[in-house]
């Protein structure tokens, strides 16, 4: 479904070169929910932008359903961390969700259905006419997620979407993502720096090394598919997995420090 092959990104300016991503290769199969986790500054956002077609890699390729990604693909939606800047303050909640659908030239009736359905899915049915800035942070991110869902993407990319919300809201939103992934037919790539979050959400966790980045490990999360904030997080396997990934990341930091 999604194939990233030998991806490399070097930022260049006049004085120096920074190799943010060295050599990344991985595949996601259709309908998978995978989490990407790595130490801060490891180039997660760079990788995501390359996959989203917002940035051109220095070398390597990204393929979505067999087609090479050169610009933003029509069947992919991105949820950014900065919901406050990603939602347009001059449009209402409904206007924000509808804008990409208008661009897709969907008829008015269909747009209305998608807006209603997506808002219902994120639990914000009553807020269509509100402006995003009238809502709380958690609600704003729900609107951004609703906008992505309404776009009917085959692949949903999420760039640390819950990094800026409080812990309780975060737990709710994590469950929302699991719920939406079960309900809608899509592949989800969820980028985070939070190991617990990655293990709780994913079927699979890709562990990235420090910059310059490679895939350090690919961990399959063999937890039951119905997850719950209390029981899943107290499961012995959960603890075991998070310990493993934690030490992987610590390891990654040290090796890269030693290499320097």
């Amino acid at each position: 479904m999604l194939e990233v092959t030998g991806l490399q990104k070097i930022y260049r300016d006049r004085e120096r070169e920074v190799e943010a991503v060295r050599d990344l290769t991985f595949q996601l199969t259709e309908g998978e929910l995978a989490c990407l986790v790595g130490p801060s500054g490891c180039g997660k956002t760079t990788l995501l932008k390359c996959i989203a077609g917002l940035m051109e890699p220095t070398s390597g390729t990204v393929e979505l359903a067999g087609r090479s990604v050169t610009g933003p693909p029509p069947d992919m939606a991105v949820v950014f961390q900065e919901y406050g800047r990603s939602l347009f303050p001059w449009l209402t909640v409904q206007g924000n969700i509808e804008l990409p659908l208008k661009e897709k030239k969907l008829p008015k009736k269909r747009r209305g259905e998608l807006v209603a359905e997506s808002l219902e899915a994120v639990g914000l049915s009553g807020s269509a006419r509100a402006y995003p800035w009238q809502l709380s942070g958690g609600m704003q991110q729900r609107v951004a997620i609703a906008r992505a869902i309404a776009y009917e993407p085959r692949v949903l990319l999420m760039d640390e979407p819950f990094a800026a919300v409080d812990a309780q809201t975060r737990a709710d939103l994590e469950d929302l993502i699991r719920d939406l992934w079960n309900r809608f037919d899509m592949t989800v790539l969820f980028v985070t720096h939070d190991i617990d979050e990655a293990v709780y959400l994913g079927q699979r966790v890709l562990v990235l090394s420090s910059s310059p980045t490679v895939v350090q490990d690919d961990v399959s999360i063999n937890l039951p598919s119905v997850r719950d904030q209390l029981t899943t997080r107290s499961d012995a396997r959960f603890t075991e997995l998070r310990t493993r990934i934690y030490s992987e990341i610590q390891n990654a930091k040290h090796t890269s420090a030693a290499a320097k």
Binding site: A52, L54, P72, V78, E82, R85, F88, K104
Partner: peptide
């Protein structure tokens, strides 16, 4: 830039971005 990238990721073309993002 986040607004701009959002618009691009949702397939808004140059003209649409000018009208719906740059103008406001």
């Amino acid at each position: 830039p986040v607004a701009e990238q959002t618009a691009r990721s949702y397939g808004l073309g140059r003209w649409s971005r000018a009208r719906h993002v740059t103008w406001p």
